[in-house]
Design a protein around this nucleic acid. Structure first.
Length: 428
RNA sequence: GUGGUCGUAGCUCAGCUGGUAGAGCACUCGGUUGUGGUCCGAGAUGUCGCGGGUUCGAGCCCCGUCGAUCACCCCA
């Protein structure tokens, strides 16, 4: 427990340590794997950027920018901000390094920490981990569906079932402007309290997300964006739906979906898990038409998503899914005495160099203690190294699962283990 | 930023209307002079989140503070 002056982690951060860190690692890698399988390549970016990037990219009217950013001045007097989301940074890098000059679309994935200074709650942290992808330079329903499929495939690979996909179309800028005008007129006729009215003034779409029954009821009859889509937007959205069905991906059209970042246009989607608390979105994203140009780049459209790794871990736990451990050991060595510890370490290093995963019982433990350590390590085999073994070069290789032991020559242990782990042993 | 609940051993928690701490799990050692998982025995562990107040006496009551948690707001 926290004692007096004991240091503790900053408020609202999530930490993963054994054994739970294995779950985190597995989930993250699974998401990344899915992106790689669809041809996305790594883009590794800084966690802090010029504050201006987010103000222009994400939008100053958004909550994320107006009150949730970790912003500070560096020693050169520059305003720096810890990234609250990933897309703006990717765009900046693409523009800065002319990544869009070659074949399109540019397909990249990223993963890492993001920061928002919010009040923490279930599934919402001030530092959170996200895996995301972006496909830039192509406005096409097929790529929209591919992006959605990357996320859906990853969730299925994790074994998740209790989630659903919601999609909508936010239309192009023309559709959006026409609609917003009508919606503002509708909202103006409602009698709302000051705070709510202020929220509506910033972004009228927000009211669709209000949790209060009276507001929900009032918004029930509100016009929806779907009715104001241009023919092109409508046709594109129809194609997205058709393709999702063809891929066997279930979805629900949510005409009232709200996206918190200003740059979204066209296809927008959100994966919602039903076993979490109030923060139920495990991943979401959509198309952005004006973002690149806004940041000084070409007039290129793009689409991407961000998936919350922390929330996916919680989702797996809520469904009782037990993921394979990312930590595995092939062999655990138990030295009998202080005299054999050094020899054991040499043996371990030799085996490790050939690609085996090997650990040793350190400290002056009893044989029983050493074997308990071997047991808990989860290693598939154990071997006790004592004076006798070193003198005779004979030891018992024990299968920890079955309990069977077979006598082997220590000098040929490498070859013996090669039979069991052909995939891990390299030719060195 | 606003509100509810909570803060006792590494973990999960018990502790009646105030009388200075306990269980299970985990851990270490032993029962089995050199082979784990089951079983049995023994042992170690806390300034009861922190600070102040009331009291002869506070884990328990009061105030503050920090943290956690859940919800609003917002979102991954």
């Amino acid at each position: 427990m926290a004692k007096g002056q004991q240091l503790q982690a900053p408020k609202g951060v999530s930490e993963y340590f054994p054994d739970r860190s294995n779950t985190f690692e597995y989930v993250r890698d699974c998401l990344i794997e899915s992106a790689k399988n669809s041809g996305y390549q790594l883009i590794e970016l800084p966690v802090f950027e010029d504050t201006e990037l987010f103000k222009r990219g994400v939008g100053e009217s958004t909550d994320v920018v107006s009150k949730e950013m970790y912003t500070f001045e560096d020693r050169g007097g520059r305003s720096i901000t810890l990234r609250p989301e990933g897309t703006a940074g990717v765009m900046r890098s693409v523009i800065e390094h002319n990544l869009d000059r070659g074949q399109l679309p540019v397909k990249v994935w990223y993963s890492g920490q993001f920061f928002r200074a919010e009040r923490p709650q279930a599934g919402r942290y001030r530092q959170f981990y996200q895996v995301g992808i972006e496909a830039i330079g192509l406005d096409d329903p097929e790529i929209d569906v591919e992006v959605i499929a990357v996320a859906d495939r990853a969730f299925r690979a994790l074994g998740l079932k209790n989630y659903s996909l919601e999609i909508t179309s936010l239309g192009d800028k023309a559709s959006r402007d026409a609609y917003t005008k009508v919606l503002r007129e509708y909202i103006a006729k409602l009698s709302l309290d000051d705070e709510t009215a202020q929220r509506a003034a910033i972004n009228p779409l927000r009211l669709f997300d209000d949790k209060r029954e009276e507001v929900k009821a009032a918004m029930q009859a509100a016009p929806t964006l779907m009715d104001y889509l241009t023919p092109e937007s409508r046709e594109s959205f129809e194609r997205v739906k058709t393709l999702l069905t063809a891929l066997g991906i279930n979805y629900e059209v949510n005409k009232r979906m709200v996206r918190g970042l200003d740059y979204y246009t066209g296809t927008a989607f959100e994966f919602v898990h039903h076993g979490l608390g109030a923060q139920s979105g495990i991943g979401g994203g959509g198309r952005y038409d004006g973002l690149m140009a806004e940041l000084g780049g070409a007039e290129l459209s793009g689409i991407g998503f961000g998936i919350g790794v922390d929330r996916c871990v919680l989702a797996c736990e809520s469904e009782g899914i037990s993921l394979p451990s990312t930590f595995t050991l092939d062999l655990f060595i138990v030295p009998m005495s202080i005299q054999t510890k050094a020899q054991s370490l040499l043996l371990a290093e030799r085996l490790r160099e050939s690609g085996l995963k090997v650990d040793i019982a350190y400290g002056d433990r009893s044989l029983k203690g050493g074997m308990k350590a071997a047991d808990k390590s989860g290693a598939r085999f154990s071997i006790v190294i004592g004076e006798d073994e070193l003198a005779s070069d004979l030891a018992t290789l024990k299968n920890m699962k079955t309990g069977d032991g077979s006598s082997i020559k220590i000098s040929t242990l490498h070859e013996k283990l090669r039979d069991y782990f052909p995939e891990t042993i390299g030719d060195r």
